[in-house]
Design a binder for these strands. Structure first.
Lengths: 219, 219
DNA sequence: TATTTGTGTAAAGTTTTTGTAAATTCTATC
DNA sequence: GATAGAATTTACAAAAACTTTACACAAATA
């Protein structure tokens, strides 16, 4: 089970080089050229963010990440002068690396951070396929935007998310979410699945129907 | 817990960009397009003043501020030539930044000033969405005006404020604020939430109802 | 292809939950 | 113990959520 790293870097060359090196080092690495789409992606084990990006700057992405998770973040800063300033600011990232940097150094810092954080890393939010559920806040984000769910909808999604990839029968779902067995047949579960899919929009497609069995979130 | 910054800058674009960056950096920032209204507002932790303003220039605002407070002030100066002149005069501001400036640099200087002036920032008051609760003074402000709360109302608000963004069940609220469990059903919590919302006026809308769960402040 | 079985979904009907005014009980203070 | 203000309960209206029904549609089966 290799660890996942998301890299956000607009310079194509740098991105390709770093991704290649990360793969060589045994990480599962995914690159983005801009902030768009980053937060739709499930939360990885570590982020590497360029502080200067075309659309949205690295800091604003950092803020959003920190809103849902305390996953380690490494910021890439441009020039020497800016680097010291940013580093001194302590904006909430775990490490700052000045460009140009050696790939080996980057990887060694990544490993250090993962070692350090791996211990008591408490994930605040569950994530999958653009869906994020923060149980403390009782808040759900689909593709980055908040979604208002009713009580049962939320409970159902939470159950699916905590069992992502697992096939769940209607009986099991009813037991867990409703807490008792319905008598006859009813479309209640289907009904709530429908509402969920609808409210989650695009991301709702990750809720799969298993004909004759029940439902499943993701692969 | 966040520090307040007032920005006076007539250029809409610059004002928006800087305000955005300040918010991203975790400050509570408020912008004015001209000098009017600035001094009516409560004194923040730091001012940023453009030296060239339509009605009243930044220097006269600076004078007035210095008349009542020694709060840090950063002046924004236009071009290179003027910058040096102003800087050499030492007009009483704590720092001078020439336009165009990098937002990162501005924020770094702000932090430096706040660190220097405030020492260790003693944060007495919690703030969110126009509601301020100063536990030392046991005083609550809603949209800037004092609100008289009863004991239970205050305790309830304080609990909500210290857990802003967190979903709180009625049981939890009762445990913490009332200290014991009610027997049967009762509308007591709802009742106090209602009074709070009423007394807080506009700002009361930040207390959200989570149907089937409880309540939550903000987010 | 025809049939059967299972699922999606809109809409109606029912239940649950919350908001709120008013009545009642409690508590501190004089 | 009288009184005023606060806290709690009661009762009901309003709003929101939940379940069921009914039927269309899709997939599996014969």
């Amino acid at each position: 089970m290799s660890q996942k790293i998301v890299l956000v870097e607009d310079d194509d060359d740098i991105r390709e080089i770093v991704l290649y090196a990360l793969h060589q080092a045994g990480f599962e690495a995914l690159g983005f050229a801009s902030g768009a789409g980053v937060l739709v992606h499930p939360v990885p084990d570590l982020y590497i963010l360029d502080i200067m990006l075309p659309d949205e700057d690295g800091l604003s992405i950092l803020k959003k990440i920190r809103g849902v998770s305390s996953v380690p973040v490494i910021m890439l800063t441009a020039k020497g002068s800016e680097h010291d300033k940013v580093k001194g600011l302590d904006l909430g990232a775990d490490d700052y690396i000045a460009k140009p940097f050696g790939v080996m150094e980057l990887i060694s810092r990544i490993k250090a951070l993962l070692r350090r954080s791996g211990g008591v890393q408490k994930e605040l939010a569950l994530s999958h396929g653009g869906i994020t559920i923060d149980h403390a806040k009782r808040q759900v984000l689909a593709s980055g935007t908040p979604v208002a769910l009713t009580f049962k909808e939320y409970e159902l999604l939470h159950y699916l998310m905590t069992n992502k990839g697992i096939a769940l029968s209607r009986d099991k779902i009813v037991d867990v979410v409703w807490g008792y067995d319905f008598e006859g047949e009813s479309r209640t579960v289907d009904m709530h699945i429908k509402s969920l899919r609808q409210k989650l929009g695009m991301a709702g497609e990750h809720i799969k129907t298993l004909r004759g069995v029940g439902y499943k979130l993701g692969e």
